[in-house]
Nucleic acid binder design. Sequence first.
DNA 1: CGGACAATTGAGACGCGTCAAAACTCGTGG
DNA 2: CCACGAGTTTTGACGCGTCTCAATTGTCCG
Lengths: 221, 221
Amino acid sequence: MTIFERTLEPSGDAADDLAALFHERGSTIRFAPGTTIAHQGETAGSVYRIRRGCVRSSMYSSEGERRILQFLQADDFLGLSDAALWLAAQEAVDTVVLDTLPRSVFEARLQFCPSLQRAVRHALATQVEAHASLFALTSQTTAVERVRLFLEDYQSSRTSTGFVSLPMGRRDIADHLGLSMETVSRAFSTLKAEGEIELKGANFFRLVQPRTTDGGYANAA
Amino acid sequence: MTIFERTLEPSGDAADDLAALFHERGSTIRFAPGTTIAHQGETAGSVYRIRRGCVRSSMYSSEGERRILQFLQADDFLGLSDAALWLAAQEAVDTVVLDTLPRSVFEARLQFCPSLQRAVRHALATQVEAHASLFALTSQTTAVERVRLFLEDYQSSRTSTGFVSLPMGRRDIADHLGLSMETVSRAFSTLKAEGEIELKGANFFRLVQPRTTDGGYANAA
DNA sequence: CGGACAATTGAGACGCGTCAAAACTCGTGG
DNA sequence: CCACGAGTTTTGACGCGTCTCAATTGTCCG
């Protein structure tokens, strides 16, 4: 079962306009694995576009517990909300290369460019959908099922044949799915033992079933 | 502990413009308790603004399991995403009165009204924040803690002194928090026994602690 | 080859889900 | 006014899945 059917069309040209703005006015920064791109609660002074690598959006509680809201990849954006502060910390999972733009430049351009506004609306709606997908995933399913759905969803969002790279560690996956690291590890072992996935080391996987065709959170009437 | 600090300022005038559009061009509809305003997966042909009552956004899995993403109240909007289909079903918890607007009218006006665009962006960002809040809530906390945080969050979002009305049932709360109905009921009993809440019937509550002042998911640096 | 860190595996305890029954609420009708 | 019945809420008992703590194995890099 997949998480649920997508409701959003890919918005071609509008996203291109957004990308073009970064290309035209942005500068490039590089972050080492494990470093923080933006701190939770900090003033959001920049907007980012991912060129390379994997970024995790983490929310930390006052007790230090962490919840990972999403894993972002190339062509995803950071900071398109109109919130003054970062809702979540943005952290580099592996080596990350970003285009960055001062917030002021971004907001100024946004005022007079309807296609940019469409792109921002679409990007925010996409984020809402991603969160909904995570809710579906972390609802009433068992641990093994959660991991399996996560891997399916992850694979489908990365254009890749054969083995798929998992740049994040087990702990990251655990904090994403609301499980303990050990339970995630056990789930990987179970899926491997049952022949549902193949592993190459701990960070490359492949689903043996090309696609399970039933439809999770169905949108069909 | 509260869920986390808000990052969004209330956006006064922009939201007013949105409300004004509904007032000017919209019509009013009424829904009886338990009825469905919009079906999941259906084409989203209208935009709504809540005038009165409580609406739940429910996602149904293909197995019929339900997850409630949020409870919406007066002055909240439905359908501002650019998605072609409803991501979740919108259902009336109690008697609900809505302003409604054809999607086409809304989109046309949006093209040429920057303040509307700001309002839409803000509303979507608010939704992202609400989802993040729910993630924080459903992470690693125990069942009693989840319910307590839910009640705190719920009370703080409703302007009300004394007892607060809970229009939704235990099952609704359970499907919102990812718990069983029985566990939610037990949590209510525990909180009552420990003197943390007072109950008037099953649908009115009051937190006895005026405010626990530590800050959950803190945004402070 | 050796050391640090990540991942795996094991054993035990606790919390939540499930099934089941009792208590409560509220509207209806005698 | 009181009795009745349907639906909701509460409480109980039990089994199972996941968390916790702990030890072992595996992996990458110096």
